[in-house]
Simulated scan of single mutants.
Amino acid sequence: MMEERNTTSDFILLGLFKYTQLHRSLFTMLLTIAIASLIGNSIMLLLIHQDHQLHTPMYFLLSQLSFMDLMLFSTIVPKMATVYLTGRKSISPAGCGLQIFVSLTLGGGESFLLAAMSYDRYVAVCHPLRYPVLMSWPLCLQMTMGSWILGAADGLIQAAVTLSFPFCSTHKINHFFCETPMLVRLACGDTSFFENLMYICCVLMLLIPLSLILTSYGLILAAVLRMPSTDARKKAFATCSSHLAVVGLFYGAAIFIYMRPKSYRTSVHDKVVSVFYTILTPMLNPIIYSLRNSEVKGAVKRWLRKCLYLKYGQN
């Protein structure tokens, strides 16, 4: 007998943790990491906004990355904490659609933003004298807007199509937020065409920017190896290493989530990797850029000196 269809009732998020002592400790640790991510990205945004030496296309793109991470935190973490702390696991279809839209917008937008950042590094290393022309502010703004628009288009289409399916009587989502693959599993109708289309779309959204990134860094590597000075090579590698680390973190998690064959997917693996890219990676991004970047460290020192002067200098 077919299950009763229900397209109006709320979904139930089963959450990430159970109510055991071990899971309480894990939840506390994860919430601490999430708060650190919030603080780190907020400081990065503040530094880039306040310090005039960071008013360059490179750091504008980095500020967009921090803003995306903050948006992802605001969409996912509060609901995750509410589910665990209060036991209120229901989420409305509108709330579920919003989580799908925002997470996919930010995921798709970040993939193209990372490609724009790789082009910025290519111009800085390979054509430093022509940097103001090849990486002008109008071009930087166009690439940024393009990243947001392409991500939003993907998020809107997938959220709308996912919620248009009829769902069976069980609305329990074995996850801590609404994600398209999880909701598709609850649909009563035939979703094979949409799943194949979603798979192709995700491949294109990931591989097109990734191919641009690899091309940029291939050209950068060739240029660096031709540099006669060891110091120049070290400086070039230092300039690019932070961005490469962020690219590796982002694409590793995204490919694992969206490009695996359906037969290899399990809810446990999906939840673990989702924690990685929604909470851990946003925390690591500002750390990577601050520890590996002398300009950011210089901005932090100037900001601290300014704070100390305002506190003690007028006494």
Results as ranks from 00 to 15, higher is better:
I91S: 12
F112W: 10
I149K: 00
Y119H: 14
L113G: 02
C126F: 02
Q158L: 02
M143H: 03
L156R: 00
P93N: 04
G109V: 07
L129T: 13
S147T: 10
Q158S: 12
M117I: 08
Y119I: 14
G107H: 03
V133P: 03
A115S: 11
G108K: 01
G151W: 02
S103P: 06
G155Q: 03
A153W: 02
V102P: 02
L139P: 02
T144R: 05
A152N: 01
I91G: 15
Y122A: 05
S118V: 05
S103L: 10
T144V: 02
G151S: 06
T144K: 01
M145W: 09
V123Q: 05
R130F: 07
D120T: 10
L141I: 15
Q99V: 09
L104N: 07
S103D: 05
L114G: 02
V133G: 01
Q99E: 11
G155T: 03
L134E: 14
P128W: 10
C126E: 06
A115L: 01
R88L: 15
G146I: 02
R130Y: 05
L150I: 09
C126G: 06
S90W: 02
Y122N: 03
G87W: 11
S90M: 11
A124K: 05
M143Y: 04
H127Q: 12
G155L: 06
L139G: 08
C140D: 04
L139K: 10
S111F: 00
P138I: 08
E110M: 08
T105M: 13
S147G: 11
S136I: 09
M135F: 03
W137V: 13
C140V: 12
A94W: 08
G151R: 01
G146L: 07
I157G: 00
A124R: 05
A94Y: 13
H127E: 13
F101V: 02
L104W: 06
M135Y: 02
S103R: 06
A124C: 09
V125F: 01
I157E: 00
G108H: 01
A94C: 06
E110Q: 11
P138D: 12
L150Y: 00
V125C: 05
T105C: 15
